[in-house]
Design a protein around this nucleic acid. Structure first.
Lengths: 210, 210
DNA sequence: GTCTATAACCGGATAGAC
DNA sequence: GTCTATCCGGTTATAGAC
């Protein structure tokens, strides 16, 4: 919840910070009241329950993210550019509301139990498909390696991006363009300076056994 | 906690599953008692508090992980092999005790507040350094790209690996060697089949603006 | 080693005054 | 729109019987 301009948004903003820092169920309505300067009972004038606050925070976050992905899809970019734009927009959404992102990542299991968030699984699937479609198209067109497992690759990429919301002052101490550049280069060309030429059966691990 | 062989380990095992699935603070001692077939009061014969259970679960997990990394360090491998071995051993530790891994990832902030776990920050730093040292050595020796930001790269790699503990039946439906291979290939050579030859200033993003 | 019973407390939520 | 006062159920933890 960026830039609260009224009492209600201020409550959501403070609640976000507490939920992200301590978890939803260990944050008490009394703490939320303290943070915003009112007594817990007064919160119930603005929201019917604690879970209603959570619901608004998460819906706002997902609305923004899905709107970004819809704009990316509308550009009809080639796979490389599309993937890099998804990375960029994902980092931007993390920067816009890191607390909401963190809550979504940390407490997905709990969020699924909130009746008002029953569409969560569907929304998660839509987000996932934006990535998987791009990866699969790139592999099919010979732009990405043909041996990639698109769903698994997406999860590695997603796992890399979303938890940056937890990083100490993410996107502030480390400027967001630096993160975007590191992430993009890492996933596009990898760590090795001069990898051996790609062959279909070449993807084996060189790990030693301990 | 794999393979409980006594009542005490059984309690830890069931508690692990509940903490991982619902979070620590929303898991009640009554639920733990139910899961193990005793009343909540009886748990206190085995453990002085709920946090004491958490402490043992986390210490066991970190003991295993750090022992693995120590064995890797003792092999004195070259950067590529060392990094790939760290990846492999990390996946093995996730597979050995996914619940503990999940708790550690999900509730790091809360764990830090448990007095008996006051060394958590130090241990996290040691784990991190195993990776960063490898990345920096590889970059210095011209084996990895010279432009990598080692701490940031580590966090992307770690972020990719640890949350696999949360994946539906991680390491079961998807065999662990498949995950290791995908992860290793992804980070070593990236997604692109034929990336442009590396130049120092070439690491720019091709993302479109939405 | 487990059970019963209970202490002492804290949680979300409500009702009505101002 | 906020405060006071309170309800009630759930929470960890304890004490002592078996």
């Amino acid at each position: 919840m960026p830039k609260p301009d009224n009492r209600r948004d201020e409550i959501l903003h403070e609640a976000s910070k507490l939920f992200a820092a301590k978890g939803i169920s260990s944050t008490t309505v009394r703490e939320i009241g303290d943070a915003v300067g009112m007594l817990s009972g007064s919160l119930y004038h603005h929201f019917p329950s604690k879970d209603a606050m959570v619901t608004e925070i998460i819906n706002g976050y997902l609305d923004d993210l899905q709107a970004r992905y819809a704009r990316v899809a509308a550009l009809n970019l080639a796979p490389i550019e599309r993937l890099e734009t998804l990375i960029l927009e994902s980092f931007k959404s993390v920067e816009l509301d890191p607390e909401a992102c963190e809550i979504y990542q940390n407490e997905y299991n709990y969020l699924r139990t909130i009746p008002a968030l029953s569409n969560l699984g569907q929304r998660a699937k839509e987000i996932q498909n934006a990535w998987i479609d791009t990866l699969e198209e790139g592999a099919a067109r010979g732009i990405f390696r043909p041996d990639i497992d698109a769903p698994v690759c997406y999860r590695f990429i997603g796992n890399a991006i979303w938890p940056t919301a937890r990083w100490p002052r993410a996107g502030r101490s480390t400027p967001i363009d630096h993160l975007v550049r590191e992430c993009t280069t890492l996933f596009m060309r990898g760590l090795e300076l001069n990898p051996a030429p790609f062959t279909v059966d070449g993807a084996t691990t060189r790990a030693a056994s301990v």
